[in-house]
Simulated assay, not measured.
Amino acid sequence: MSDIEQKRQYYRLKYPKRARPYVRFADEMFQVTEVSEGGIRMVLNNFTCMYKGLSMKGVLNLYGDRSIPIEGAVLRFDNDEVVLQLRKGPTFKIMVDQQRHIRQKYPSFFERLRGTAA
């Protein structure tokens, strides 16, 4: 067993503010701060009415003109963000492509994240 044990099933990709993807549910659009194969974290809009367990379907728009249909439910609220647990979302391949893009385009962002994790 390694010194560092993975506690999560899926790697969560954090996005720098200027590179955040967005998700659309019906007529509302939300900035996304983190994405994984199993969930997303997004910034709440002031006029949005959501509750824990609410089922949602929408489209996640990622770098490279990738539009991913997603389905899930509200898992929890965290300050001004909401976490959705996905039943349908991005594939592992898409997540690897997104991570590669962010690492190449924003290398200092990943260095800062690595510094806070150590």
Rank of each mutant, 00 (worst) to 15 (best):
S2E: 11
D3K: 10
D3V: 07
D3G: 11
D3H: 12
I4S: 09
E5K: 15
E5Y: 15
E5Q: 08
Q6R: 06
K7E: 15
R8H: 02
Y11P: 00
R12I: 03
R12Y: 02
R12V: 02
K14Q: 11
Y15V: 01
Y15F: 13
P16S: 09
R18C: 05
R20K: 05
P21I: 04
Y22L: 02
V23S: 02
V23Q: 01
R24N: 07
R24C: 05
A26E: 12
A26Q: 10
V32P: 00
T33P: 00
T33R: 03
E34A: 07
S36A: 15
G38T: 14
G38I: 06
G38Y: 11
G38L: 13
G39C: 03
R41D: 08
M42C: 08
N45P: 10
N46R: 14
F47C: 04
T48G: 09
T48I: 09
C49D: 14
C49R: 11
Y51I: 04
M56P: 02
K57I: 07
V59M: 04
V59N: 10
L62K: 02
Y63D: 14
G64I: 12
D65I: 12
D65P: 01
P69D: 05
I70K: 00
G72Q: 06
V74G: 01
L75S: 14
R76Q: 13
F77D: 05
F77H: 09
N79Q: 08
N79K: 10
L84T: 01
L86R: 00
R87N: 13
V96W: 03
V96H: 09
D97Q: 15
Q98M: 10
I102N: 01
R103S: 11
K105N: 07
P107M: 10
S108Y: 09
S108V: 10
S108H: 12
S108F: 11
R112F: 14
L113A: 03
L113R: 13
L113M: 08
R114S: 15
R114Q: 14
R114I: 10
G115S: 11
T116C: 11
A117C: 10
A117T: 09
